[in-house]
């Protein structure tokens, strides 16, 4: 059990390079009552804009560093960022004082219609300019660097000119943003497009990696063979653990999140998954920097 704090005293914001779990609504009471021994939590910003949920996150924040992970900013939307949504996020950031803030390489809105999914971007110079502009604007509004997560995608576009890892690297260079390396998303996308997952890792700028995500996914039989679907409703798969170990050797330890959003299991199961990540961080995370210097 985590040490209870003095009333009105908030723990520090910094997210440590250890295992964390996603905070989910069904577990709020358990967090308040039991104070589980987890180093940090990540919350989906858009689920904490409503009154009661926000009040609960505020209370939980006293005892845990919080990372805010957004799904609704639509950084890739050609029409621009939703001002009201950015303002609401800014207020959430001000009240919560997150140790990390993140979003996705994706788009979700067009003609002021929000389509409630992380939709695929054609990776072109035009997209890069648009996403970079929005990342800069978001960082400016929110007052800190944000991390951009590599997406799970199900299709690629013929008119794309920039491969995804190079696109992310260019984004880092233009904006000073960081990256969330979602290991599960690499496995999903690599499976769906025939990529080499390890090679993908090798083309990312090491210093920009600020966080790892680990999650479960499903495979679905289609007329074109197996598609991997990023469902976040399973334990982390064996090939994801394996790629995570490669990433740890290459990049060193980083805050590592267990992301389980659907068919949410008990808190104990989530904590057990986090413990698996923590063991690998402890074993393999050391020496990442040394390998770099060699």
């Amino acid at each position: 059990m985590a040490t209870p704090r003095a009333a009105g005293c908030r723990c520090e914001a910094t997210i440590p390079a250890s295992a964390g779990i996603g905070l989910r609504l069904p577990h709020h009471q358990a967090f308040r009552d039991q104070r589980p021994a987890i180093a940090w939590i990540e919350a989906h910003s858009e689920n904490y804009l409503s009154g009661p949920a926000f009040a609960e996150l505020l209370a939980i924040r006293n005892d845990y560093p919080v990372s805010l992970h957004s799904v609704g900013l639509s950084l890739g939307a050609a029409e621009g960022l939703d001002r009201r949504h950015l303002a609401r996020l800014k207020e959430l950031v001000r009240r919560i004082e997150p140790g990390l803030i993140s979003e996705h390489l994706a788009w979700g809105a067009v003609d002021h219609a929000f389509l409630a999914d992380l939709l695929p971007l054609p990776l072109t110079e035009e997209s890069l300019a648009i996403v970079a502009r929005h990342v800069l604007r978001a960082q400016d509004a929110l007052g800190q660097r944000i991390l951009i997560e590599n997406p799970a995608t199900y299709l690629q576009f013929r008119h794309s000119t920039i491969p995804e890892p190079e696109f992310l690297a260019a984004l880092v260079e233009r904006t000073g943003c960081g990256l969330i390396l979602d290991i599960n998303n690499i496995i999903v996308s690599a499976g769906n497009h025939g990529w080499d997952a390890e090679a993908y890792l090798g083309r990312l700028p090491r210093a920009a990696i600020g966080e790892f995500h680990l999650a479960g996914h499903r495979q679905r039989e289609t007329e074109i063979g197996m598609l991997r679907i990023d469902t976040h409703d399973q334990p982390v798969a064996a090939d994801v653990w394996a790629l995570f170990e490669v990433a740890l050797r290459r990049f060193g330890p980083r805050p590592t999140l267990i992301e389980w959003d659907q068919a949410i299991p008990s808190l104990d199961i989530l904590l057990a998954e986090a413990a698996r990540a923590a063991r690998r961080l402890a074993l393999l995370g050391l020496g990442g920097e040394n390998a770099d210097a060699a």
Binding site: D111, L115, L155, R158, H193
Partner: peptide, 29 residues
């Protein structure tokens, strides 16, 4: 993005096959 939004409705009949790389635009979309 406008076209993609319209294509999200199966009834539109547009599966983006001409801009999607490789096979299986229908299943992917």
């Amino acid at each position: 993005q406008r076209r993609f939004r319209a294509a999200l409705t199966a009834a539109s009949g547009d599966d983006l096959a001409d801009i999607v790389q490789g096979e299986g635009a229908v299943a992917r979309l």
